[in-house]
Design a protein around this nucleic acid. Structure first.
Lengths: 177, 177
DNA sequence: CGACGTGGAGAACGTGCGTTCTCCGCTACT
DNA sequence: AGTAGCGGAGAACGCACGTTCTCCACGTCG
């Protein structure tokens, strides 16, 4: 197994475990076990846990936004499709809310790289919505609805928070035209 | 110092520290130091850290909702006043987002009492909004906006997320009439 | 065939922290 | 005054975990 495959397996394992149980609850040993990569190699690829966490967040950001973008694009870039995608996400087994919000909660004073990754994700999502909705104020409003629905779906376990947010978004978008 | 005063000082210290730095980042020793209560007494009042965390959350829930209720009530129970209160909160020094969302992120699988306290808080806030807004669907929409604004204000550090949510709420409430 | 280097398995180390234990001084009652 | 019990200060214990070290098997080159 070469170094790039090791990195890949490590990130895969890290994402599964960190998202499911929280970063702090998962030890490096668990990542090693799940990935099948030796500890030595692990520390060659990621000199410290923080580096692994940061890479996990960056990768999750790319994938998460990619999935959203593809789904919405296939529906003509209709802003309301965002909420349909959310509902799918909320319904997935193992859904545990937004990895970035959870990480923010986990670290009182995050390492700089981690804080940056969290902020970057939110900035990118906001920018994406701004590309989808002409009026920037309405885009920000939808963003707030997206975040609220995600948090509430995670805590209450009810995927229908997506429908509530969608209804609100519909009204806000109609007010726009 | 009797037992009730000790409990009070412990909860006060716990709230300051847990909210500011996160629950996991604060050791029992820090709570002891800040409260001035001995470790022995601490463990008499709260047999385990989880008990202290649960009590912290329950107490914070009461105070948080009390503050919101009073503020909004003084403004004629206008639902939009909720967002004015939010903006004040976001602007406070030391604001670090919603303690309950943060705790949710911190514990992958929370102890039952802690999970219950988190859910209770959100249920109570939702119920409060339902009392403020005639249409339950719109109340839920405002709830989503409140949570979204809180999360975003915490991560971006920008209190104006409250204004964005307020604008959206205004539109949603107007559509109601 | 033999020396060397690479990589894996897992022990070991240091630290932090939740929890408990020990010791000591003080107070209150006889 | 003497003693029994309460409370405080802080040491001690056990464990978990991030990180490093040791040892060994294996493949490669001279």
């Amino acid at each position: 197994m070469d170094s790039v495959e090791a990195t890949d397996r490590l990130l895969e394992a890290a994402e599964d475990l960190f998202y499911a149980h929280g970063v702090q609850a998962v030890g490096m040993d668990a990542v090693r076990e799940r990935s099948g990569v030796s500890l030595k190699r692990l520390y060659q690829c990621f000199p410290a846990k923080n580096d692994l966490v940061e890479a996990y967040l960056l990768r999750r950001d790319e994938r998460w936004r990619g999935s959203l973008r593809d789904f919405v694009h296939a529906r003509g870039d209709d802003p309301l499709a965002v909420f349909a995608w959310l509902k799918n996400w909320f319904t997935e087994p193992g859904f545990r809310g937004c990895a970035f919000i959870n990480s923010f909660g986990e670290f009182g004073e995050p390492a700089p790289g981690i804080a940056a990754a969290i902020r970057k994700h939110k900035d990118e999502v906001r920018a994406y919505l701004h590309g989808l909705v002409p009026d920037p104020r309405v885009a920000d409003q939808l963003f707030s609805l997206v975040e609220g629905a995600t948090v509430l779906a995670a805590i209450t376990g009810d995927p229908c928070e997506a429908d509530t947010a969608r209804e609100a978004a519909k009204v806000l978008l109609k007010a726009l035209v």
